[in-house]
Design a protein around this nucleic acid. Sequence first.
DNA 1: TTCGACCTCGCTATTTCTGGGGAGTTAATA
DNA 2: TATTAACTCCCCAGAAATAGCGAGGTCGAA
Lengths: 239, 239
Amino acid sequence: MVANTTVEEVLAELEQADTLESIQDAILKLREYFQVENMVYHWVDSAGEQYGYGTYPLEWATRYQEQNYIRIDPVIAGCYKRFHPVDWKKLDWSSKAVRAFQAEALEYGIGNQGYSIPIRGPNGQFALFTVNHTCDDADWEKFTEDNRRELILIAHYFNQKALEFEPNRAPEQSQPLSPREIDAMTLLAIGYSRAQVAETLSISEHTLRVYIESARFKLGASNTTHAVARALSRGLIVV
Amino acid sequence: MVANTTVEEVLAELEQADTLESIQDAILKLREYFQVENMVYHWVDSAGEQYGYGTYPLEWATRYQEQNYIRIDPVIAGCYKRFHPVDWKKLDWSSKAVRAFQAEALEYGIGNQGYSIPIRGPNGQFALFTVNHTCDDADWEKFTEDNRRELILIAHYFNQKALEFEPNRAPEQSQPLSPREIDAMTLLAIGYSRAQVAETLSISEHTLRVYIESARFKLGASNTTHAVARALSRGLIVV
DNA sequence: TTCGACCTCGCTATTTCTGGGGAGTTAATA
DNA sequence: TATTAACTCCCCAGAAATAGCGAGGTCGAA
């Protein structure tokens, strides 16, 4: 046992912190506290930029980037589809490419066990907090059961920090859509054609077009598809 | 003080629960534990269906629905744009309609203080866990500071349950898109025209069209906009 | 090895969408 | 009260998307 440092203390510290290094710092302290091999915080901001902090070996991080492993990493894929913390064992490792990736990760010193907590924001932000270790299944299950709650909380705190540091948030904020614009975007997003939307909303197709256009301008979109995509990722409409 | 029931116990109970009533049940116990007037869990599933559980007076819930207050409720609006727990005081109550809404809510027995925790899922699911009380600002601040962590955890547990009960998840699962289809959908989602996408991917526009078509079929979409919207809300592409 | 899934390219005709205009009413806000 | 924002309607020409059909090569998995 280590730990004159408790989770509480680290979180309190993190809350006050005002530099990016503080995230890295907190990760190191928490890793020590939890006695795991790796602890990583990964964040995708609303502009699609990625940031990673944590204890993965530099060589692995480089390799990962070079090979664009984010495309095949089942942790990313799995967490993107999921809502809740997930044990790596429950992910889909069946394909050949994925197993090769897994083998390579092991070589680079990534543990055989992992637990990742996905959290997502209103503008497409996506964060992943991962703990990673080498041990057998039983020990790992005990570890995750015992610490799940703390890990969820830690993930939240990291996110709070990351959001503070996100540079391009204000510029991405767009004017809100008017009710009619929201109606139009929503119906388009569920597959209605212009004619159908106009009929559904009981307005002329000409009028509808005005809404689509103004929504497009508000969203800075270059066409209808783009506008709907933006409205969706900014949480202005829900489908 | 009440509480031979602790948060831990309620959460453990909730974890085992297998009926919707269990959510309501847990809310009542937690309200007692935290000694607040209202506690509400509100959930929007991936099909846009809404569910609410909690202790708001029935008259208020009815009134809220009848008036379609969800459209002006600043708690909804604010949490939709936010990432993190938010105190109601920090929301935008400036517009006239909103202040009228607020006054009415007070009349119906909704406390003057509130704290809401938004959480969102990969398919547009959105959940809100709210505690609500009548007291002065200082007391409320102390309450939220003291209990924030527990409240975040509780929100997570409610979500876990809610997701289990979500009916229309499996059918919405679609075949995965091929790499080229993902490329195409992604570029379309960021506003490229067909010609631009084809050029970016260095393929003919004819070929591109095949990808878009096959993606459309896989996604069960009736047009490109629909396909991109579905790909987005299913987390198959990221923008 | 065979099957399926993926990637690539081609054609034609029809329907739909986009990008410019303009104009009048109502409702809320400053 | 003046102004702003939202809602509604109209025209037109050119650009883009859709719905059919076809073909051939590669690569991984059963």
